Simulated scan of single mutants.
Amino acid sequence: MRTEEKRLRVIIAEDNAILRDGLTSLLVERGHEVVATVGEATGLSEMVAEHLPDVAVIDVRMPPSFTDEGLLAALALRRSHPGVGVLVFSQWIETRYATELLAAGAGGVGYLLKDRVADVSDFVDALRRVATGGTALDPEVVSQLMGAARQQNSLARLTPREREVLESMAQGLSNAAIAKALTVTERAVEKHIGNIFTKLELPPSDMHHRRVLAVLRLKG
């Protein structure tokens, strides 16, 4: 490590013990200090408060449910310790909370995919950028976040009635059942569904079922 480079103080939140130890060894070998490691997201806040690191490396899916505990912990960390850099390092892209994590536009945040980091130096450089207030985002993460944003913008174009029809479709109701539930004619339901397909940019296709794709947009 070059003498002018600051020695980073790092916390690692990763449930996989092998990867956690591997990251620790990798960083220590390059002259940085891993001040603490945790295997569950619930222990992250206390460790950060105790050690005040430069940056925390956080996995997305951690115990107990292995869904989004890591990202929720990262959001909480950004609120409680805005001066601590947050690098999400995972094989999963969770667009819902990742968007919130990056929405403020402030630096000191990153999101890299484990399977796409081919060079150790690239990872360390990204960690340094985040620790010093910069950003480090995998292009695939950016692509999926932009796609999610476009979907939300499309949904925002729906009228309240069209939204009701789409939500009824998501429940598996037929056009006749939707008409009965909303006290409208089947012809009106068909018109609403046509408008939904248009606003969600779902043209007729022999390859895809537009009704299913529309519901996936709602649930996405």
Rank of each mutant, 00 (worst) to 15 (best):
P82C: 09
G83Y: 01
L87E: 05
L87Y: 01
V88K: 02
F89T: 10
F89H: 14
F89E: 10
F89Q: 08
S90N: 12
Q91S: 15
Q91P: 00
W92I: 12
I93M: 07
E94I: 00
T95R: 05
R96D: 13
R96V: 14
Y97N: 13
A98S: 15
T99H: 13
T99V: 01
T99A: 15
E100C: 00
E100D: 09
E100T: 09
L102W: 02
A104H: 12
A104Q: 13
A106Y: 04
G107H: 06
G108S: 07
G108T: 05
G108R: 08
G108I: 03
V109N: 02
V109K: 07
G110W: 07
G110I: 07
G110L: 07
G110H: 09
Y111N: 13
L112F: 08
K114C: 14
D115Y: 04
R116C: 08
V117Y: 00
V117L: 00
V117E: 01
V117T: 04
V117H: 00
A118H: 12
D119R: 13
V120I: 10
S121E: 14
S121C: 03
D122F: 07
D122Y: 06
F123M: 09
F123W: 10
V124Y: 09
D125R: 13
D125Q: 11
A126V: 10
L127F: 08
L127N: 05
R128L: 09
R129Y: 11
V130C: 06
A131W: 03
A131H: 03
T135Y: 01
T135A: 11
T135P: 01
T135C: 10
A136I: 07
L137D: 12
D138V: 04
P139M: 04
P139I: 04
E140V: 14
V141C: 07
V142L: 11
V142S: 10
V142Y: 00
S143V: 02
